[in-house]
């Protein structure tokens, strides 16, 4: 619970989709009891376990990799106490052919404890191969496990380091290099989304409410319910006294 709360506050979802949409789009309901009939207790048979990959849950590829009716082997993850890798972080790769190299995190997949590092840990992928045509090679990066394959880079000496979460005197939670004790700030890139680079740079569209209108305070405390206030506003008067009713 603590982890999810923390992730919600710090790790910005790049797609900028609401959580409800992501849940809805990956849903696979196999069977559901008819609603509104008293002879059924409400039951839903749906897919509970998903294989998370580099394809995001709202895409068609994700659905293809989790086809309805198929069961995929469980993936055991090393538990992570508090997530500490964000988009834009400089990390050092500890495994593979790019061992010892440093790169920038481009994508974070916390469902699998994965990060993608720009231009590192890549392989060639053959696309469109068929008889008489060898296909084309595409360079694609593989994900790296945050618990064992990468570590953060200390900004003071540009060497790889372990980190820990600590509190400043102002009560702010910060990442600190375990070796030198220097602060590792969360990069600005983490706040970038598909819709904007920074929240301030967002272009308001036709149907958006202007920011000035949103922040305007129009509420005046008043001793009335919502309905009473609206009736007064619209000039609806009611003199009749309701009959006494009983709630049980």
């Amino acid at each position: 619970m603590r982890l999810t709360q923390f992730l919600a506050t710090k790790l910005k979802n790049f797609s900028n989709f609401p959580k409800e949409y992501i849940e809805r789009s990956k849903k696979q309901v196999y069977w559901k009891t008819p609603s509104g009939l008293p002879n059924y207790t409400q039951r839903t048979v749906e897919r509970k376990r998903f294989r998370y990959t580099t394809n995001r849950p709202w895409t068609g590829q994700f659905r293809q990799q989790n086809m309805p009716g198929t069961i995929r082997k469980k993936v055991f993850l090393n538990p992570v106490d508090e997530w500490g890798f964000f988009r834009g972080d400089r990390v050092e790769v500890l495994v593979g052919k790019d061992k010892g190299k440093q790169g920038i995190v481009t994508q974070v997949i916390p469902e699998r404890n994965w990060v993608m590092v720009e231009g590192l840990n890549w392989h060639y992928r053959t696309v469109g191969a068929e008889e008489g045509f060898p296909g084309i090679l595409i360079k694609s990066e593989s994900p790296l496990d945050v618990t064992k394959d990468v570590r953060l880079v200390d900004p003071s000496d540009l060497q790889g380091t372990e980190f820990e979460w600590r509190y400043t005197e102002e009560g702010e939670k910060v990442r600190v290099s375990a070796r030198t004790g220097r602060l590792i700030p969360i990069p600005e890139t983490n706040n970038q989304t598909h819709d904007y680079k920074t929240p301030g740079a967002y272009i308001e569209r036709e149907k958006d409410t202007a920011a000035a209108v949103v922040s305007e305070i129009t509420f005046q405390p008043k001793l009335s319910t919502f309905e009473m206030d609206i009736m007064e506003e619209m000039g609806i008067e009611e003199e009749r006294i309701p009959k006494k009713t009983y709630w049980y």
Partner: peptide, 21 residues
């Protein structure tokens, strides 16, 4: 079709009943 985000609770709390209606 690009649009902004949903209305948050704290933004709606400062609006009058008429606005909410």
């Amino acid at each position: 079709v690009k649009v902004g985000r949903a209305w948050k609770l704290e933004e709606l709390r400062i609006k009058s009943n008429k606005d909410l209606h």
